[in-house]
């Protein structure tokens, strides 16, 4: 009756490296359920990542997997999709990976609208390197490099994606575990560049330094800040202060890059 994750987890690879209560494991389960529900074949699915705790995900799952360099996952994924458009290409990674060092690749993949699903596990911190602030760390928050509170304002990843031209943008949280696969499955079915941001938790390097005393407090925080889009539409700006809107935030049908390029090839070859 439960879900058989064993079908997709590589034998002998568990337990994974993530810390107790790290949300990345919850998100990975959601990703597996999503792939299962859309029916992508293992042989024809590539999962690509950059560097970071979140980016270790591909090593555990039984697909054509590629763990690349920091921030470059989307660019490697672009090469795969362009060279073999019949492959399903999914890119995964953290907030630092995706919108700091990889920000340029991210916005340009959005602009091209290439058919890749990009899962960003946003824990608001550089987890792997021990908790330095990331471009999504809230202003004022503590990180190992913001001992007096973070002076930087954060990015809103979803707005960034929409602004850059992504044609599917959704947001969920690691607390709302049952929603993760729904959002990802819809993203995978969408033809174009789809971005799914999952608000995640890093109890080890973020929670510890900030006001979250335990894994559970971090989970409950995700529960408290999330407001589904349908509810948010009925709320005032005042009521929405400090909240994060979840659900499918944006969806649009536009020509997809890799298939448009194939059409160009056919046109050129026809003379």
């Amino acid at each position: 009756m439960g879900f058989d994750y064993g079908k997709y987890i590589r034998p002998g690879k568990l337990p994974h490296i993530w810390c107790p209560g790290c949300g990345h494991g919850i998100v990975m389960k959601g990703l597996i359920r999503a792939i299962d529900s859309v029916g992508f074949s293992k042989d024809m699915t590539s999962i690509v990542s950059g560097i970071g705790c979140a980016s270790r995900l591909p090593g555990y799952v039984d697909f054509c997997t590629l763990h690349t360099t920091h921030g470059r996952g989307v660019a490697f994924a672009t090469g795969i999709k362009m060279a073999k458009p019949e492959m399903n290409v999914i890119c995964v990674g953290g907030d630092g990976d995706g919108v700091a060092i990889g920000g340029n690749h991210f916005i340009h993949a959005c602009r091209r609208n290439i058919d890749i699903t990009y899962l960003i596990m946003n824990n608001n911190i550089y987890g792997m390197t021990g908790g330095q602030f990331s471009p999504t760390t809230p202003t004022g928050a503590k990180a190992s490099t913001t001992p007096y509170g973070n002076p930087d304002p954060p990015f809103d990843i979803a707005k960034l994606a929409i602004g850059a031209g992504a044609t599917f943008v959704a947001r969920g949280t690691a607390f709302h575990a049952a929603q993760i696969d729904k959002l990802l499955a819809e993203a995978m079915r969408h033809k174009g560049f789809s971005v799914v941001e999952i608000l995640d938790s890093c109890p080890t390097t973020y929670g510890r330094r900030n006001k979250y005393k335990s894994v559970i407090e971090m989970m409950n925080h995700l529960k408290d800040v999330a407001v589904p889009l349908s509810a948010a539409e009925k709320m005032t700006a005042e009521q929405l202060r400090g909240k994060v809107i979840t659900g499918v935030l944006y969806k649009e049908n536009k020509p997809e890059y890799a298939s448009e390029y194939r059409k160009l090839v056919e046109r050129v070859q026809a003379g």
Binding site: M1, G2, F3, L14, P15, H16, P20, G25, K29, A178
Partner: peptide
């Protein structure tokens, strides 16, 4: 199924 869904470590199964 809450436990199985939420366990980050694939440690809980309910059958």
């Amino acid at each position: 199924m809450q436990c199985e869904l939420r366990c980050p470590d694939f440690a809980v199964t309910v059958s």
